[in-house]
């Protein structure tokens, strides 16, 4: 690991000032992905700002809004009774990610800002536009079995690797960001940006901004939300395809649906066209399959990831069946 300066922030404002002053700083919360990428020489911060002791760990349900502090640990959020009951997809997504040890260290804010990364990004001997802008992408014609089929560009096809953000995306979560001008709220699916020709830029945060928490509005349909993750191993593995969904039935028809995909896109992928198709339909595989076809209509595959189109469609159908079973 390269040498860096280590500083401890005693308030969010101090953390932001320390970041602005440095120019190449990284915030340290759980450290689980940052330390890994620093050992691989992919992340090379000159300054590491330890924010892990800041008082941003509360999980509070006030009225119908759940606020989760950015430094709440993944395992604490996953097992929180209010989260498990009101937003089961969030709990399921968290528990499907990483391992018990990592979930005990990883934080919600850090999870949202984990790098979108593929094997070529992680190995400095390969060309990677995300790691070294303009250098090229060896994944395009490489071993791209795990790479994205939605939201890709000619510069980058790395898959957004997280689970939590996919569930939060489906459930229209907001991210609370503190900056110089005070607090602002960003819709989760506006936090992330498509790679385009600037894959090194993954989110809309400005320099010196800090995520302090997330907010979820409790709605009846979220109580029947579900997260399904398909992967090569039963546990401790990234998704090949994942689905976060929620369904509300009314008079034998789907009144409202929420659908987001993971494991197949460069960002947490909200499938709004599929949601619109589901609304008003009677529940059943015909409607689910139509929605799945719509969700994957824009897929662009490479040599080794074509299987993901059908895999994602079947995952959508299965997840909707489960969610609908719970909503019936």
């Amino acid at each position: 690991m390269r040498a860096f300066e280590y500083v401890v922030a005693d308030s969010p404002a101090a953390a932001r000032a320390l970041a602005r002053e440095s120019g190449d700083a990284r915030f340290y919360a759980g450290g689980t992905t940052l330390v890994d990428l620093m050992k691989s020489d992919v992340e090379r911060p000159g300054r590491v700002i330890d924010i892990s002791r800041l008082p941003l760990t509360a999980i509070e349900l006030r009225g119908d809004v759940l606020r989760i502090g950015a430094l709440a640990r993944n395992s604490d959020v996953a097992y929180d009774p209010a989260v498990a009951r009101r937003f089961p997809a969030v709990s399921e997504a968290l528990l499907s990610g990483a391992s018990g040890q990592i979930r005990n260290a990883a934080t919600i804010g850090g999870n949202l800002l984990q790098r979108t990364r593929c094997t070529y990004f992680r190995e400095t001997r390969w060309r990677c536009n995300k790691r070294e802008p303009g250098s090229g992408c060896d994944a395009l014609d490489g071993f791209n079995r795990g790479h994205a089929i939605l939201g890709t560009s000619d510069s980058c096809i790395a898959t957004y690797p997280g689970d939590l953000a996919v569930a939060l995306c489906a459930l229209s979560a907001n991210v609370i960001v503190e900056g110089d001008a005070g607090e602002r709220t960003v819709a989760l699916d506006e936090l992330y940006v498509l790679p385009g020709d600037r894959p090194e830029r993954e989110n809309t945060l400005a320099a010196g901004e800090l995520i302090t928490g997330i907010e979820l509005r409790a709605e009846p349909l979220y109580e029947h939300s579900h997260y399904l993750k398909i992967r090569d191993r039963a546990s401790y593995e990234f998704a090949l395809a994942s689905v976060a969904c929620a369904i509300e039935l009314e008079g034998g028809r789907i009144a409202r649906a929420r659908l987001a995909l993971g494991g197949v896109a460069t960002v947490p992928w909200r499938a709004r066209e599929a949601e619109d198709l589901l609304a008003g339909s009677p529940p059943g595989d015909a409607a689910y399959r139509r929605a799945a076809d719509a969700a994957l209509a824009g897929a662009r595959t490479r040599a080794h990831n074509g299987y993901k189109v059908e895999l994602a469609k079947r995952a959508i159908v299965r997840a909707l069946r489960t969610a609908c079973g719970g909503a019936a």
Partner: peptide
């Protein structure tokens, strides 16, 4: 709480 010591500063 169980934690990975290799990923912690």
């Amino acid at each position: 709480r169980r934690t990975l010591s290799c990923l912690a500063l």
